[in-house]
Design a binder for these strands. Sequence first.
DNA 1: TATGAATGAGACTTCATTCAT
DNA 2: CATGAATGAAGTCTCATTCAT
Lengths: 174, 174, 174, 174
Amino acid sequence: MSKKNDILKSALKLFADEGFSATSTSKIANSAGVSEALIFRHFKNKNGLLEAILKEGEEKARLLFADIVFETNPLKVIEKTLELGEKFMASKEVADFWKLQYKIKWELEQYGEQKMEPLEIALTNAFKKLGYEEPKREACYLLTLMDGMATRFFLQKSYDLKLETEYLRKKYKQ
Amino acid sequence: MSKKNDILKSALKLFADEGFSATSTSKIANSAGVSEALIFRHFKNKNGLLEAILKEGEEKARLLFADIVFETNPLKVIEKTLELGEKFMASKEVADFWKLQYKIKWELEQYGEQKMEPLEIALTNAFKKLGYEEPKREACYLLTLMDGMATRFFLQKSYDLKLETEYLRKKYKQ
Amino acid sequence: MSKKNDILKSALKLFADEGFSATSTSKIANSAGVSEALIFRHFKNKNGLLEAILKEGEEKARLLFADIVFETNPLKVIEKTLELGEKFMASKEVADFWKLQYKIKWELEQYGEQKMEPLEIALTNAFKKLGYEEPKREACYLLTLMDGMATRFFLQKSYDLKLETEYLRKKYKQ
Amino acid sequence: MSKKNDILKSALKLFADEGFSATSTSKIANSAGVSEALIFRHFKNKNGLLEAILKEGEEKARLLFADIVFETNPLKVIEKTLELGEKFMASKEVADFWKLQYKIKWELEQYGEQKMEPLEIALTNAFKKLGYEEPKREACYLLTLMDGMATRFFLQKSYDLKLETEYLRKKYKQ
DNA sequence: TATGAATGAGACTTCATTCAT
DNA sequence: CATGAATGAAGTCTCATTCAT
């Protein structure tokens, strides 16, 4: 794999573990086994590196969401949304990626609403079809809950994401 | 007000707005209108300053939680928990304090579970009294949801905390 | 003498000898026997250091020019202007200061016309009193010549400023 | 035109505008539309590039001076010398070349006396023929003046080289 | 001839912290 | 209690240059 990729991988891991500000470019270079200067040659500056990582991530997220957005069965839309959380745990790298997303949200105070919009619309439609009185609100409610679950999952070691997802699943099956 | 307090206030605001790592002691000193050295005289080092802020905060949180913990009417326990969120917005300083709590959680990856334990126990008891099948799980569920609501409130400008709380309230009244 | 002054002195010497761009802040710190950080504490950045030196210089120049500007005898105005050149050589530090002025002019392409204006006006008046047909032009001519003499004096080792000044003096006595 | 020439042209412009130290090889490569490595292939290093530019320039200067040096009519020698200044303005590229000459003089503190010697000798002879008492001094005087005029022309936007040359011409016609 | 990838050295600057007063 | 002077270490980034292709 190319050195540029090594940098991206190391940076993702370090940003996710220690935060953007707290991770120095020299630490990234060290961990990637490249010279510090190479980071700047490839990404212009530290922010450029972050942006490259986030852009890569947006693509991944789009793919993940696409599966939900194009689902027509409302029950399946909800089910697939619930499964999203469990996908966080698929691999160390995927988990790092999502952890970074949340960490960055807090560090830079950008919520990135537009990224979630298609998902919210899909959920709103699903709840509408299922006869919910306030489908838009319920969609927001579920997504907010999932933000909470992510918070717990990444920050509270004792949190059991699977069990909690199961409980939520039951609620929506009533 | 004392200079020590000026420092605490400025640091709270800056840590909450820009994060701990990204806030330099010189910025704090500047914003507080004191010399940088005074920070170190009062708090030993930058970490000491953070700890002082967090300790101050724990007290405030304890007070806030006490009201809920000693409540015996289960419906009121839930209602008061829901009201907690709206208290975030009471004043700029209170909001900053809570924002900092969340920011620090993500920056230092300490969830501080023990702080929330009394609240979780109180909620568990309340749900038990109300005949919920899995009261402990429901308590965790509600607190997780509130973490999500906090995330949205602090990071997503368009989020309407009052409306969402209202929706949640209705759910628990069914 | 204060460390701040040591920095100014070292910087003046180095900027004058090697140019602004080619002189690193670490070289200045070394030569002044202080930490590099102190430069930034006192002058904000490398440009601030240059500005401080130039501002100090403007004062010196103003004093030097004042003597000429308030002279009423036209012959003496010219004589004192001619003497200006010889004052470049008064001491190593004064010479460094004037060398820096010229070096900076070329490096940053700022001529600083307004600094010379009072002198040009004084000379124009002197030549008018002496009956020159184009006094303003003659003033400009003399000052331009002195720029040339400075160029030679600072850059051409074999240039004998005293002899050349003597020759010029004769010209104006005709 | 060859890429080697593109580099020379861009470097001349940039060195003349921003100085040698302040111009990075990457800026030159960028502005010339070539890779940075090509500069080093053609000129070994940054200094080699400067030397190539200066050598190219020496040739141009030699040609310019030759016309004066081989002139036998003393009045024409003076007239042609005066015209030299106006030739600075012939084209942007010629002006850049002369600006660079002066800039480099100041940046590297090399006056390059030997380049001017033939001109000085020619002028000395001319003034001798015209009966000046100190012909060598007068030659030096005129050349110094022209250095002053160059300084003004390149650094002082409001300087009117043509008018000043005209004034000088009158002086020598008296 | 021409380039893209790569780098060691060093540039400017900021940081948290100490100390004398 | 409060500050201004001072600094070592580290931070981000640029520089001239090399090398494989």
